[in-house]
Design a protein around this nucleic acid. Structure first.
Length: 908
RNA sequence: GCACGAUUAGCUCAGCUGGUUAGAGCACCUCGUUUACACCGAGGGGGUCGCAGGUUCGAAUCCUGCAUCGUGCACCA
């Protein structure tokens, strides 16, 4: 019979994967509603990828981990939901489209709001469909019928409802605060959206002349251009150098404006000159000091990042002397101011200096701290009726272990971040996003000045009936909507009712929330995970998920980040899938990867796992061709049969336990070892000699396919399809698709240590003979003779003679209990079994040397063990079984030594 | 500055709660076309587990310090 009738010689993922995925989709089995009898829910809400392009290897890793957990629990009979979606990612999407526009030579402002939003929507729609297609290529078994998008109408309603609720509870407020401003994005950023990095810059030592005096105080600053906004000079009250000037005034260089000299403990006497210029509009610390002393705020850098002195004019200051600086870009202004100070004799010196600057996490532009009227969430205010602030809720959820973070060490980072959390600025001056649900009834429009916060945009002012309302143009921080992701996707707020002050969940929300696991990369633990916990605790009074599993970053083979700007090092998961198949990519991202740790990915690695997938394929091919040709006459189980059954049951237990404990790499590793080393290289080879059993082979294969399926779903599903007609139809529960085949139950009574030990001995005998052959360069063609001397185990070895000889290419294996050992033979031993390979061309001298070496080795070992065993403390304190084992060991060593010495004598 | 990781074979990494002579994959060397698989099989070489102390009968594993690399947070103008 031709093997190719059953399976092609090599696995060809390209011809299989699309078809298999379509079968899964058509079956409708990704949808938990297809399992009406399942009661226990298991739910993962997919972290929505940004709809800004295509999936990269980092996404792939997340998809694979989630799919593994989902498929495993689905097979275990849970009501399993994996809900997919995409994020509109306001800033990221805006930037992408702005880049495209830049190539056309226009900006978003040239296009105008309406047209620009159309462009973004088109772009995002394209992206979303690409992402969906790619998710299918990755094998994601998510319920596409429940797919969500953070900017779709139902999500908008949820977001606006949330905003109104928080506003009504007094948790959202509008105020002028110092914010992080990106002059390129033209928007605010949250504190954690600012990345800090060291930059080489200059330290300017500027003389600030004291009024009515010919002395001055020197101030060191890295940002001289902000001095137009200075409102004071601060020194430490204990600083003897400046004590006498406190309460006096400074005439601000260039501006000629007078500012006070104040004292505050905040000033570090040892840093710089010990004198600090206070610029409240452009530095968070200065803002606090300014507030403390009522110094006022003079904002002199506008939204574009250019100098602007309107604030000075408004306060009635004469800007004539500094007019030439107005309109200058902030960094050009820095140079210009430095030069002007030098020319006017105010610059004492200039030193090079490294300081930290904040960068926009989306476009790397240097952040300008500035004061601005924005919307904030108050994280420290007690929530009405809850006796906890948002911050306290979020801390408690993790402290109490209601949420378990894997790996645990990220707890600390979470606490540290959450404890330092300031009010969260949620308004963005980005056009693309959820519009803030606020309208203003402005007095200039004939209104009453009312601020209206409502889910639907109001047509008229509820207070004065004015219909000429202005709607807030700012949009919400993307993380506001993604913070609601676990419950907005499950139907909040429609799926809740309030009864007697309690929240009653309905529908999917009741079934699946709190969700089971959140799987994501550690880099968004603050952006996203923390905010989800905070917002969910607020909205539902429960945690969003019970477990947070954090994966690491996917790096290239040299450990570098696969950034888009370094295309040559970036591995495109889709290219790899096309070349090696999805399963190979899955294995290379799952094996050897531990939670929270980064993964290095290289094409070599993917290739080697492609080889494994092919091995699995060929094992199946062998089993299926063999069983197709064999008849069902099978005798009793042999030692090898009992051994593989024992190993298989052990495997089921260990793989299940590993997945339950989120040790996915270990699960895959156990399976790989069993499949390749245990099943293929030993059991199948032995069964070829001793006679294979059709049903046993098939049932091992079937269990293997099930266990492998969550990790490599495509190849296992395809093999299962081809094997289905061969499987003995004893289990009526066997479905037509592997993805819903029940996870196997181990039979603990089949695990037999004695059997494993016995078969292990046969393996060792075979390996030792093979080793002897190879080391002595006995060609494979040369059939050898093997004589075993075993006084006690001849009856045990005898049935395996044939196996031993076939697997060692021996023409003849004989067993002796007693008798004269041959001297012109290679000598080996396994436990108390002596093995001889008589050779006509025996090199006696070489064998002597080898034996001498081995004797020295074992003597050293005996010496070490003896030292240990004569240590009274060891005997007294070590557990008994350890001591016993060691006694046993030394006895064996000594026996081995004796046999070796005897053989050595024979060679003389 | 504070915190958290990492440091094990040439390379990438396992090694759970301390207990034989420390493992895997890749790479390397030798041999091999035995009809499941050369995307393969058999065998092999290669590590004082970053350094220095300590706890312990016993440490890659626990503790302390140091070094190198990486990350997060906070930054003093």
């Amino acid at each position: 019979m031709d093997n190719s009738d059953i399976l092609p010689k090599a696995y060809e993922p390209q011809t299989v994967e699309d078809r298999i995925y379509k079968t899964w989709m058509d079956s409708g089995l990704f949808n938990p509603d297809a399992y009406p009898d399942a009661t226990e829910p298991y739910c993962i809400i997919m972290p929505p990828p940004n709809a800004t392009g295509k999936l990269h290897t980092g996404h792939a890793l997340g998809y694979f981990l989630q799919d593994l957990m989902i498929r495993y629990h689905r097979m275990k009979g849970y009501k399993t939901l994996w809900l997919p979606g995409t994020d509109h990612a306001s800033i990221a999407s805006t930037n992408k489209v702005e880049k495209i526009l830049a190539k056309e030579g226009i900006t978003r402002h040239d296009l105008g709001r309406e047209k620009f939003l159309e462009r973004v929507s088109d772009y995002v729609e394209q992206s979303r469909s690409d992402i969906g297609r790619q998710g299918r290529l990755l094998g994601a078994s998510c319920d596409w019928s429940r797919e969500r998008y953070t900017l779709e109408p139902t999500m908008t309603r949820a977001v606006r409802t949330m905003f109104v609720k928080m506003y009504d509870d007094g948790l959202i407020y509008r105020g002028t605060r110092i914010v992080n401003w990106c002059p390129r994005c033209m928007s605010t950023l949250a504190d954690d959206e600012v990345e800090h990095t060291d930059r080489e810059g200059a330290f300017y030592y500027i003389k600030y002349p004291i009024k009515n005096s010919d002395t001055s105080i020197t101030v060191a600053t890295t940002r001289p251009e902000t001095m137009f906004g200075d409102v004071a000079i601060a020194v430490n009250p204990n600083d003897d150098r400046y004590k006498q000037y406190i309460g006096g005034a400074i005439v601000l260089p260039l501006s000629n404006r007078e500012i006070p000299i104040i004292a505050d403990e905040y000033v570090d006497m040892t840093f710089g000159t010990g004198a600090l210029k206070i610029t409240p509009a452009h530095d968070p610390n200065d803002f606090e000091i300014g507030k403390k002393y009522g110094l006022g705020v003079l904002r002199i850098i506008n939204d574009e990042g250019n100098l602007n002195f309107d604030a000075l004019r408004k306060e009635g200051y004469d800007v004539g002397a500094i007019q030439s600086f107005e309109g200058m870009e902030r960094f050009a202004a820095r140079e210009a101011v430095g030069l002007a100070l030098q020319q006017a004799g105010f610059l004492e010196k200039q030193e090079s200096h490294t300081s930290t600057v904040g960068l926009c996490y989306r476009c790397d532009t240097i952040i300008e701290p500035l004061t601005s009227l924005q919307w904030f969430i108050d994280v420290n205010k007690k929530v009405a009726g809850r006796d906890e602030s948002l911050k306290e809720m979020a801390l408690r959820a993790v402290r109490s272990k209601e949420i378990q973070i894997i790996p645990e060490r990220f707890d600390k980072q979470y606490f540290q971040w959450m404890e330092n959390l300031h009010d969260w600025c949620i308004s963005r001056q980005i056009w693309f996003g959820h519009q803030i649900p606020v309208s203003y009834c402005l007095t200039k429009d004939g209104g009453c000045g009312e601020t209206i916060v409502s889910i639907e945009n109001p047509l008229k002012c509820p207070k004065c009936n004015n219909t000429n309302l202005t709607h807030e143009e700012d949009t919400l921080d993307t993380w506001f909507s993604s913070g609601m992701w676990t419950f907005s996707t499950l139907g909040w707020p429609d799926n809740i009712e309030y009864k007697d002050g309690k929240i009653i969940k309905k529908g999917d929300l009741a079934t699946f929330h709190p969700t089971t696991v959140l799987e994501t990369m550690w880099d968004i633990i603050f952006f996203w995970v923390a905010r989800m916990i905070l917002m969910t605790e607020y909205a539902l009074g429960e945690v969003p998920f019970k477990v947070v599993y954090l994966h690491g970053m996917v790096l290239d083979k040299d450990g570098r980040k696969m950034s888009k700007s370094r295309e040559e090092t970036a591995i495109d998961p889709l290219d790899m899938i096309a070349k090696y198949g999805t399963d190979a990519l899955r294995l290379s991202l799952l094996i050897g990867v531990t939670p929270g740790n980064n993964v290095r990915l290289s094409e070599d690695k993917i290739e080697s796992y492609r080889n494994f997938v092919n091995k699995l394929w060929n094992i199946s091919r062998y089993v299926l061709t063999f069983t197709a040709n064999s008849h069902d006459k099978e005798g009793d189980y042999t030692l090898a049969d009992l051994w593989i059954i024992s190993k298989l049951n052990r495997l089921i237990i260990e793989v299940s336990a590993s997945i339950d404990q989120y040790e996915f790499s270990r699960a895959a590793e156990l399976l790989r070892v069993f499949t390749w080393d245990v099943f293929a290289d030993w059991y199948i080879e032995v069964s070829k000699v001793e006679g294979a059993k059709r049903t046993l082979l098939l049932s091992i294969l079937e269990v293997l396919l099930v266990l492998w399926h969550p990790i490599v779903p495509f190849v296992t599903e395809e093999i299962y399809r081809l094997a289905l007609p061969s499987f003995p139809d004893v289990k009526p529960s066997r479905p037509s698709l592997l993805m819903v085949r029940a996870w196997p139950q181990a039979n603990p009574t089949a695990i037999n240590e004695q059997v494993e030990k016995d078969f292990g001995l046969i393996q060792q005998v075979i390996q030792t003979i093979r080793n002897g052959r190879a080391e002595n360069h006995i060609p494979a063609g040369e059939e050898i003779e093997v004589i075993l001397y075993t006084p006690h185990r001849s009856a045990f070895i005898a049935p395996h003679i044939n196996t031993i000889s076939r697997l060692t290419h021996a023409k003849n294996v004989t067993i002796q209990e007693i008798g004269e050992r041959p001297s012109s033979a290679l000598f080996m031993q396994v436990e108390d079994i002596e093995m001889f390979i008589p050779l006509s061309s025996m090199k006696i001298e070489e064998e002597k040397t080898r034996l001498d070496k081995e004797i020295a080795n074992i003597e050293a070992l005996i010496g070490r063990t003896n030292t240990q065993l004569s240590n009274q403390e060891f005997l007294a304190k070590a557990p008994e079984n350890i001591v016993q084992e060691m006694n046993l060991k030394i006895a064996n060593y000594q026996d081995e030594l004796v046999r070796m010495e005897q053989q050595r004598k024979r060679l003389v």
